[in-house]
Design a binder for these strands. Structure first.
Lengths: 345, 345
DNA sequence: TTGTAAGCGTTATCAT
DNA sequence: ATGATAACGCTTACAA
């Protein structure tokens, strides 16, 4: 049946592989432009012809060639999501949300990882740039000037980071941190240490700033441990410093570090939360698998990913540039890793 | 400096946006075809001209237009990875490996998720098909005929699944399961229950078959609990059945289910592994975060993802179709969720 | 409403 | 070794 299509081309175009609009046109008895219009511009054509064209297109198994379409239009219908680290659980939500939003808008999502360095991130952006209509940056190493420059040559949206002149989707850390500080204060903590993440992280600064402000306002003593890798190892590595400090509660840059710290502390005989309270950020998968489960400041990352793509899509429109969306909310999830300090001899 | 490029087109092509090979040709004083050759076919051209062309290309900030290139060549230099569920920790390794391999080969990786149904998976494959040179299927709902048909119209590779006529990368479950059975036997278990995953899963059948064989060979009594969702919930949901059964050790389809079962069992006062041993598959992030940590059969998923892309790339080559790669190894990771049964009154 | 024809930026086939 | 020139499959004025 569909073999009819495979026949050697009759005149027009070489029927090499999949049928083209020329094939559809010939079979439907219309011109190629009519086919094009019927398929991409419903309504600008008589209902009858449109129907006929769609039918024969379906019958021939016609699938539009995206590259061919992108050439005259300049639109690839593809978006890129740049990630620092795919295996970091924080990004799962973002990826899923972004993919969903892209698919819903009939866009294709390209995922690119660029662990190494700022240079690698730049290179990755430049590499995928030409094949996409826009980029969502969920990276952290790139400096603002580079980001601004990249955003100039290709529509871009930042997630979890704010840079002057580049649309972005950022969390409202304030709310979650405020709740966390309240929580710790209620539990009787006074000395609260912040286990910092990578120094290049915008989010890290936000979290520390919010903690500092809220902590002072609440009458707590807050201080910062130097930044480390945002991983289990990074958390583990901080244990000695934490143990040597006066902190009775630790707020880690993220759950990964919180868990790393938790495990190492436990290995050293520290009981959490009796001897030490630990909290994190992100509510990653795994945070409620530990014993005790991790108290954390969560954000709707899946929504964020979805909105980031939505924002990017808006900027792609001719009249685009919708105003900056409000920060997405964060909230405290109280679990078992925070508690009242146990009075010990 | 680079502003020179932005000048209104001089004769040739409309300099709308990024420079084309025509711009490079004009500036370098050669023909467009020479530019094309210099850029995509190093060596087929005089060293001097190639140098000149490359320099001016760099100077103008020329970036090749992938859509334009794809039109005559038919190669998009893009690959797709189809996933059933992005948030399932099992796929992280696969994604990372695949992305790495693709990037190394200068290919772009498209990620597409298709949770729902076989129909959704098919639709997704058809949707991304035209924009890519090949597809890696890491899905499970599609039936073999559909897969074979899809593979006919577009190079495809399967991961974690074997289908006649379609190249695939599958695990050697045997080895890991054998070790697991030995382990359980050593611990004194006799009645071993298998908590099955989705009935549509090829991997599920492999695991059960291997367990059945190895179990019988070892003189154990093995039996299967009806399949459930491969999630925490799926594992939790099976608790009642497990509790009612004679099993003293449970092998779950995957770690997610194992963890789900573990938690629900614990909530019911069951002590793992004293009262019940639990093991899983995949060694996902989170398996060593639980208390007790999960004994599991692991596979090098990152390598698998990398090799799947490699295999696909091979099939894209003219002389392609390298022979089927050997199954990738699996091995037992002994942790704390399995142990000797505690004698109780 | 529909058809004709000229691009879009590359590659590939010829010549030279 | 290099240069014209014709595709590649689609969109889009411009005509009819």
């Amino acid at each position: 049946m569909s073999d009819a299509v495979r026949e050697p081309a009759a005149g027009g175009g070489a029927t090499s592989g999949s049928p083209t609009i020329y094939d559809v046109a010939r079979v439907a008895g219309v011109s190629p432009s009519t086919v094009s219009r019927a398929l991409s511009r419903p309504g600008r054509i008589s209902a009858a012809t449109e129907r006929k064209v769609r039918d024969t297109a379906a019958q021939l198994g016609f699938r539009i060639n995206p590259s061919a379409r992108a050439l005259p239009t300049g639109r690839t219908m593809t978006l890129a999501l740049l990630l620092a680290d795919i295996t970091n659980p924080v990004v799962f939500g973002i990826v899923r949300g972004a993919e969903r939003a892209a698919a819903a808008a009939r866009y294709t999502l390209v995922i690119a990882e660029s662990q190494e360095s700022a240079a690698a991130e730049r290179a990755t952006a430049l590499r995928v740039g030409p094949s996409v209509d826009g980029i969502v940056f969920a990276t952290r190493r790139l400096d603002s000037p580079s980001l601004q420059e990249l955003a100039r040559s290709k529509p871009a949206v930042l997630i979890n980071r704010a840079v002057e002149g580049v649309p972005s989707l950022v969390p409202d850390v304030e709310t979650g941190v405020l709740a966390l500080v309240e929580h710790l204060k209620e539990l009787g903590h006074v000395n609260v240490g912040y286990l910092a993440g990578p120094s290049s992280s915008w989010v890290d600064r936000q979290r520390w700033d919010a903690l500092l402000r809220a902590g002072r306002a609440a009458g707590l003593r807050v201080f910062e441990f130097p930044g480390g890798e945002p991983t289990l190892e990074g958390g583990s590595a901080a244990y000695e410093r934490v143990a040597a400090s006066p902190a009775t509660a630790i707020v880690a840059f993220n759950d990964l570090m919180a868990i790393g710290l938790l495990r190492t502390a436990q290995q050293h005989g520290v009981v959490v939360p009796d001897d030490l309270s630990i909290a994190g950020f992100d509510d990653i998968f795994g945070s409620e698998l530990t014993t005790p489960t991790i108290t954390t400041v969560a954000a709707p990352l899946e929504d964020a990913g979805e909105q980031a793509v939505g924002l990017l899509l808006d900027h792609l429109e001719p009249g685009g540039a919708r105003e900056a969306p409000p920060p997405f909310p964060t909230s405290l999830i109280r679990r078992r890793s925070t508690g009242r300090l146990l009075a010990t001899g």
